[in-house]
Amino acid sequence: MLHFDHAGVSIAHETAGDGHPMLLIHGFAATAEDNWGRTGWVAALTRARRQVVTFDLRGHGASTKLYDPADYTVEKMAGDALALMDHLGIERASLMGYSMGAGIAAHLAAHHGDRFGVVILGGVGEKSLSGAAGTGQVAAALEADSAEGIADPLARGFRLYAEGLGQDLKALAACARAPRGPDRGADLGLIRNEVMVIAGARDDLAGDPGPFAARIAGARAEIIPGTDHMFALANPMFKGAVMDFLAGIT
């Protein structure tokens, strides 16, 4: 991966393919490669004649690790994405984020919508609108000496997933403890882009995407049967729904 510096933070990034640019933002505790490369998204989008831009969020993968929760606000993480676009000379791009990455993507669309065309918000739903439930348990699990004894299944799952990717657990814990507002959907009404909100029917972390989409004028909600939060990106039906949406809009 290549690196560029944004306000003292080194952001690892990659670009693949030619055509209309599309920026992909991965989820919490993941990496660009695990969310977008391993699951076939980069290959599918480059075949669809798109220039795909991926990057590791601060605190994740090959990007700079930070240990103060204040360094992981949505404004700062969205700022990294905009700085990357500027660094690459990309004036306008399509945008897709998954889970925490979808929250960052929604912030970008709400406050910098002119920089983006179609927007896909994956792995978010009704439960994503209310605060940051469970992040305290997740942070504590990441800070624990080992995964043994972690009772909460969600927290244990994130710990084991992060360990499997060789992530910096302390940096991820700081990210999980970042300040978030009580209504994480407060700015959704500002979005004027063409938007799809999509989640798996068994995604207990996100919940129903319908109420989330209802806050965005004209947004389309899509539920993919039989898949949950951790496996949605690899699900062929999930990918097919997004690719059909992209083909119908751009």
Score class of each variant (00 low, 15 high):
residue 69 P to S: 05
residue 65 K to T: 13
residue 182 P to Y: 00
residue 92 R to C: 06
residue 122 G to M: 01
residue 6 H to Y: 11
residue 182 P to M: 03
residue 23 L to V: 15
residue 209 P to M: 08
residue 151 A to T: 11
residue 20 H to Y: 11
residue 62 A to V: 06
residue 20 H to F: 10
residue 72 Y to L: 05
residue 123 G to V: 11
residue 171 A to R: 12
residue 56 D to P: 13
residue 201 A to K: 14
residue 25 I to P: 05
residue 67 Y to L: 14
residue 158 F to P: 01
residue 30 A to R: 10
residue 120 I to Y: 00
residue 149 G to I: 14
residue 195 V to A: 09
residue 239 K to L: 02
residue 247 A to P: 01
residue 197 V to H: 04
residue 101 G to C: 10
residue 22 M to W: 13
residue 159 R to N: 06
residue 238 F to C: 14
residue 98 Y to T: 15
residue 175 C to H: 07
residue 170 K to H: 09
residue 47 R to C: 08
residue 178 A to T: 01
residue 32 A to W: 02
residue 178 A to V: 00
residue 145 D to Y: 03
residue 23 L to T: 07
residue 148 E to C: 01
residue 166 G to W: 11
residue 202 R to M: 10
residue 246 L to D: 14
residue 45 L to W: 07
residue 79 G to Q: 02
residue 217 A to T: 15
residue 206 A to K: 07
residue 143 E to P: 00
residue 223 I to Y: 06
residue 188 L to H: 04
residue 242 V to Q: 09
residue 9 V to N: 02
residue 174 A to H: 00
residue 45 L to I: 15
residue 84 L to K: 03
residue 166 G to D: 05
residue 137 Q to P: 01
residue 12 A to M: 02
residue 146 S to P: 03
residue 41 W to M: 10
residue 130 S to H: 09
residue 93 A to Q: 07
residue 83 A to T: 01
residue 105 A to C: 09
residue 168 D to G: 10
residue 223 I to P: 02
residue 137 Q to I: 10
residue 176 A to C: 07
residue 167 Q to C: 09
residue 102 A to I: 09
residue 101 G to M: 12
residue 183 D to Q: 03
residue 19 G to P: 12
residue 31 T to Q: 08
residue 41 W to P: 11
residue 122 G to Q: 08
residue 223 I to C: 10
residue 64 T to A: 11
residue 75 E to S: 01
residue 24 L to K: 07
residue 233 L to V: 14
residue 142 L to W: 01
residue 235 N to I: 13
residue 92 R to E: 12
residue 207 G to H: 09
residue 135 T to N: 12
residue 24 L to R: 08
residue 98 Y to P: 08
residue 160 L to C: 05
residue 9 V to Y: 01
residue 181 G to Y: 00
residue 49 R to L: 04
residue 156 R to M: 12
residue 75 E to I: 04
residue 211 P to K: 09
residue 190 L to P: 03
residue 103 G to T: 11
residue 17 G to L: 05
residue 235 N to C: 14
residue 194 E to F: 00
residue 69 P to A: 05
residue 208 D to S: 12
residue 17 G to V: 11
residue 19 G to M: 04
residue 146 S to N: 09
residue 185 G to L: 04
residue 202 R to V: 04
residue 93 A to C: 07
residue 104 I to S: 03
residue 147 A to F: 06
residue 88 L to A: 06
residue 169 L to S: 03
residue 38 R to H: 08
residue 187 D to W: 04
residue 2 L to E: 15
residue 59 G to P: 01
residue 216 I to T: 14
residue 222 E to S: 14
residue 177 R to C: 00
residue 87 H to N: 05
residue 62 A to R: 14
residue 129 L to H: 06
residue 177 R to A: 02
residue 177 R to F: 00
residue 221 A to N: 09
residue 82 L to E: 05
residue 142 L to A: 05
residue 192 R to C: 09
residue 78 A to G: 15
residue 168 D to E: 06
residue 226 G to Y: 06
residue 72 Y to C: 13
residue 134 G to I: 07
residue 114 D to V: 13
residue 1 M to R: 04
residue 41 W to C: 06
residue 98 Y to L: 11
residue 73 T to I: 02
residue 166 G to C: 03
residue 27 G to S: 12
residue 62 A to S: 15
residue 51 Q to H: 06
residue 5 D to K: 07
residue 61 G to S: 11
residue 238 F to R: 14
residue 124 V to C: 10
residue 102 A to R: 08
residue 82 L to H: 03
residue 44 A to F: 02
residue 12 A to P: 03
residue 185 G to T: 12
